[in-house]
Design a protein around this nucleic acid. Sequence first.
DNA 1: TACTCATGAGACATAGATGTCTCATTTGGT
DNA 2: ACCAAATGAGACATCTATGTCTCATGAGTA
Lengths: 184, 184
Amino acid sequence: MSKIRPTTRDAVIEAAFDVFSENQAASLGDVAQRAGVGRATLHRHFPGRPELMRALARIAMDELDAAVETATAGAHSYEEGFRLSLFAIVPLANRQWFLANEGLEADPEIAAAYKASLDDLRRDVEAAKKEGAFDAGVPTDWIVQAYENLVYAAWSLVRSGEATPKQAAELAWRTLSQGLKGQT
Amino acid sequence: MSKIRPTTRDAVIEAAFDVFSENQAASLGDVAQRAGVGRATLHRHFPGRPELMRALARIAMDELDAAVETATAGAHSYEEGFRLSLFAIVPLANRQWFLANEGLEADPEIAAAYKASLDDLRRDVEAAKKEGAFDAGVPTDWIVQAYENLVYAAWSLVRSGEATPKQAAELAWRTLSQGLKGQT
DNA sequence: TACTCATGAGACATAGATGTCTCATTTGGT
DNA sequence: ACCAAATGAGACATCTATGTCTCATGAGTA
């Protein structure tokens, strides 16, 4: 077992997700306090704010990938895969969204990983089009944008207390699939 | 004619919209520079950041109201009104969105005005439900969330250069109306 | 021309966030 | 119990954004 208490680093990371999802401009002192950790200790694990954000981004992307992979393991079609992914992603949205406004596109590794997952999404959208799940006449870029923003909308609904994650994901799926369905 | 050059205040406001829509964390120095104005002059017109943000919020909301009112003047139904509003709002989204993450809910006047416009939107959604434009079984809160976030999605598509405002608004409208249409 | 007022430039003080360092204390493994 | 490593607390220096103030300049007006 490592000499570094695994608890401390994890506590900082979880506190950072909590604090930053409430206020992306929060200070590192806020994060340390929420984690119940000294500010100096935070700096021992993460040299500075960019490194912490980088770590959060990597974790968030890995979580997302894992959740989607698990959720879609038994999917029989791309359409079903999208539906299942939506249910898996909505509860994770609060851990993802605040990262969008951080200057992470400057980090080559993060930017590359993000681009790769976007490319995957575009590929899946196009496969779903071929299945007839989405209207082939609608631009893939729009479907991707609508998908991402309906996830955010669903999360917002959950956050406001108006729906459970399951209900919100169902509404988002209905809007997306019925709204962009291929015209028969 | 007022002794205060009307140009200066307007230049600051326009620069602020430009700069903050690119980076909401930009400094007042950045805004002053973009406006071609001394930093002290900016402070002469707006005591501090909150006051500037407040002014931007009021202007943005007024612009939005005016644009919607103009656009929907000739609408024959709530459904048509929503469609026309969407076309009017998408080009203004960049002047609206960054204000969401500013602590403006703390300002009573701004908060009240925002709440009022949200209530209007909810009323219109419910009227459109009665028309059959939206499925009465879908929560009004979801329709409002989807509407707002599809506006953002449309603006994102425009910003990426993948569509004109008109095309993006058309896609957003199609997604919303077809996705939430009442089941016949 | 003389006057008034907004402006630009820059000095100055302040506040908050950040990053480093030290030292006493605690923790976990031996 | 002993030891090495991690931690907490706090001092310290630095940096950036902010807000104020002063003074010279320029534009518009009488």
